[in-house]
């Protein structure tokens, strides 16, 4: 690791004052320290945020839930209010990483974990995300794990989080504070597509700290499912994952939310397409038609053509499972 200085502020204001281009917040450390060992991240200063009062999970006035940025992934998945109101979120978290890592990983850090693209990790190769302008070897190289949706000529990386896929389907909000004040970001606007600036994964400014995630009042506790497809049964990143959430009116669809992981630079959703299935019968045919439409925009790479069919089948299966009721 490249040497750095260490600060442990005791207030949110202090933490935000210390923030800047050369400094990085550290929460669980499970992604940042890994990247520092590889010399991919070389902060001059670490700002340890573990003394900040961001560990609560509390109900909001509108019937939702506010989750502090320092709540660990394990605590969140096993929280009674989450298990009851948002089983989709619990299921997605438990599908990720290992029990040890989930004890360490924080809610805020999970959102900001970086891509697992091999070239991004390997400082001996070019990579537009790590070294802007150097090129993207994944385009013509190993791209089995890469994007099929929303990529740019400059970067075809995917966001690796499971938790974020559920948060996208649940329409969470991210509460952040910087030196110029606090703002609330819709989950769909938090992460971004690579475009011309693949070095930026999200819309957070350098001086901004994530304070909390807010979930709207639960609507999908009865009918939701997280399906993760990976190379082994446990402890692997998703090739494709699906967070499916339904509200039903008898046998018709009242609301359908589908977010995809492992396929794009951010959790992938198409809210306009979801609105088109409202009122349609909750059947495998409807789900298949929806999946085909959602994937019409797919532009696979030579190594990941299989992901299109995999994603299609996974969407249908996740929706059927969701419809059977009670996440399991």
């Amino acid at each position: 690791m490249t040497p750095f200085t260490y600060a442990k502020p005791s207030s949110i204001d202090q933490a935000v004052q210390l923030a800047g281009p050369g400094a990085r917040f550290i929460a669980g450390g499970t992604n940042l320290l890994d990247l520092m060992k590889e010399n991919v991240a070389r902060p001059a200063q670490l700002i340890d945020i573990n003394d900040l009062p961001l560990r609560d999970i509390s109900p909001t006035p509108d019937g939702g839930l506010r989750i502090g940025a320092l709540v660990s992934n394990a605590e969140l998945a096993w929280n009674t209010l989450v298990e009851q109101g948002y089983p989709l979120l619990a299921q997605a978290i438990l599908a990720g990483a290992s029990p040890q890592l989930r004890n360490m990983a924080s809610t805020g850090g999970n959102l900001l974990q970086r891509t697992r693209c091999l070239y991004f990790y390997d400082t001996a190769t070019p990579c537009n995300k790590r070294a802007p302008g150097s090129g993207c070897p994944a385009r013509d190289g190993l791209n089995r794990n890469h994007a099929i949706l929303g990529a740019s000529p400059l970067c075809v990386a995917v966001h690796p989080s499971d938790m974020c896929v559920a948060l996208a389907a649940l329409e969470a909000r991210v509460i952040v504070r910087g030196r110029s004040g606090e703002r609330c970001v819709a989950f769909a606007d938090f992460h971004r597509l690579p475009g011309d600036t693949p070095e930026r994964d999200n819309t957070l400014a350098d001086d901004e700290l994530i304070l909390a995630i807010e979930l709207p009042a639960p609507r999908f506790a009865a009918y939701s499912h997280y399906l993760k497809v990976r190379d082994r049964a446990s402890y692997a990143f998703a090739l494709v994952s699906v967070a499916a959430a339904l509200e039903l009116d008898g046998s018709a669809i009242r609301t359908l939310h589908v977010a995809l992981g492992g396929v794009a630079h951010k959790p992938w959703r198409d809210a306009a397409l979801e609105r088109q299935v409202v009122g349609q019968p909750a059947t495998a045919d409807t789900y298949t038609h929806f999946a085909d439409s959602l994937l019409r925009a797919a532009r696979p790479l030579p190594g990941n053509v299989f992901k299109v069919r995999l994603a299609r089948n996974a969407i249908v299966r996740a929706l059927i499972q969701a419809q059977r009721g009670k996440c399991q």
């Binding site: 450390g29 340890d48 040890q100 004890n103």
Partner: peptide, 13 residues
């Protein structure tokens, strides 16, 4: 009391 990976933990933390 909680299991963690010591390799991804800074001692000063």
């Amino acid at each position: 009391g909680r299991r963690v990976n010591a390799c991804l933990t800074l001692a000063v933390m």
